[in-house]
Amino acid sequence: MAIPSKYKESITPLAIKFQRAFSFFPRRICLISGAPRSGTTALCEWLGHQEGVSAIPESRILVSVHRFMEEVQRFRNLEKDSQLIFGMARGLVYDYYSSSRILMTKSLLVDKEPLEPIAFPSKEYEQFIVNTRLLFPEAKILLAIRDPLSTIWSMQARTWGESLTSAGARRFTLEEYAENWSSCAELVARHQFEPNTYIVQFGRLVNDPMNESKRIFEFLHIRNGIPFQPRPTHSVGFTKEDQANILRIVKPQLELLASKGISEL
């Protein structure tokens, strides 16, 4: 029998207080990352509907702690105690997650952080992945990659900055979007064979959802999962000139990915 919403409102704070008191927390963590608009949202929503999984998309806590870790490593007197401080930071992340959602019945927690210039104004995309690994060495990381034209078309269709407290929404140039995609593609190529890392080629997930879903479920140790169900996507409407300019910028990265067998974008 379903619990009426008015009772859920009173149960939730008690459950959260209980799980924090007894440190109930999912045994496993997964970070979904990659270029913005590369399928990270679809991945997070899909995995969040699997049994035993809780998804907290773009919590920003990992980004914030990453910035803190960068400052720790910048100062000599803090850097020498970095392992102790990082352990404290790990506890902060756990505490934030357990304050945000009832997690007692979950075995896997999924967070999503696209590598975009609003969240990472210094464009330290790779260092964010490195610091996440330092924080949670056993975490699983899904790096999504999608074809550049579809990704950049989706990027330019929205404004950025809504998650910030004070900055106004802004847009970027097509060249900046292409450079962002290129940086993320290079990161994917470098981390392809890193432990606990899986490269999600969005084209393969859409074109062969049954088999690719199985591979992702095996990577994340999800049993009896519901396969990914592709949704219609918007057509790319670039002019021939803009399309040619984008492809010129991203050509080296496309060739790099292809040389590593990453071509089903």
Rank of each mutant, 00 (worst) to 15 (best):
190 R>Y: 00
190 R>H: 11
190 R>S: 11
191 H>V: 10
192 Q>P: 07
192 Q>R: 11
192 Q>C: 08
193 F>T: 12
193 F>Y: 11
193 F>E: 15
194 E>R: 12
194 E>A: 13
195 P>N: 01
195 P>V: 01
197 T>R: 02
197 T>V: 15
198 Y>E: 07
198 Y>L: 15
199 I>R: 03
199 I>C: 01
199 I>W: 03
201 Q>K: 01
201 Q>N: 03
202 F>T: 04
202 F>K: 00
203 G>D: 03
204 R>P: 03
204 R>H: 13
205 L>W: 00
205 L>V: 05
205 L>C: 10
205 L>Q: 08
205 L>I: 00
205 L>R: 04
206 V>E: 08
206 V>W: 05
206 V>R: 09
209 P>G: 04
209 P>E: 03
209 P>Y: 00
210 M>C: 10
210 M>I: 12
210 M>R: 12
211 N>Y: 08
212 E>K: 03
212 E>T: 13
213 S>L: 04
213 S>W: 09
214 K>F: 06
214 K>I: 12
215 R>S: 11
215 R>T: 11
215 R>V: 07
217 F>I: 08
217 F>E: 08
217 F>T: 00
217 F>K: 01
218 E>T: 11
219 F>P: 04
219 F>A: 12
221 H>Y: 04
222 I>H: 01
222 I>P: 07
222 I>G: 06
222 I>R: 06
222 I>Q: 02
223 R>V: 09
223 R>A: 14
223 R>N: 14
223 R>E: 13
224 N>D: 15
224 N>E: 10
225 G>F: 03
225 G>L: 02
226 I>K: 09
226 I>P: 05
226 I>M: 15
227 P>E: 02
227 P>C: 07
227 P>K: 08
227 P>L: 08
227 P>F: 03
227 P>I: 06
227 P>Q: 07
228 F>L: 02
228 F>N: 06
228 F>E: 00
228 F>Y: 14
229 Q>H: 12
229 Q>A: 13
229 Q>N: 13
231 R>F: 09
232 P>K: 13
232 P>E: 13
232 P>A: 13
233 T>I: 09
234 H>L: 10
234 H>E: 14
234 H>I: 02
235 S>Y: 08
235 S>T: 13
236 V>G: 00
236 V>H: 08
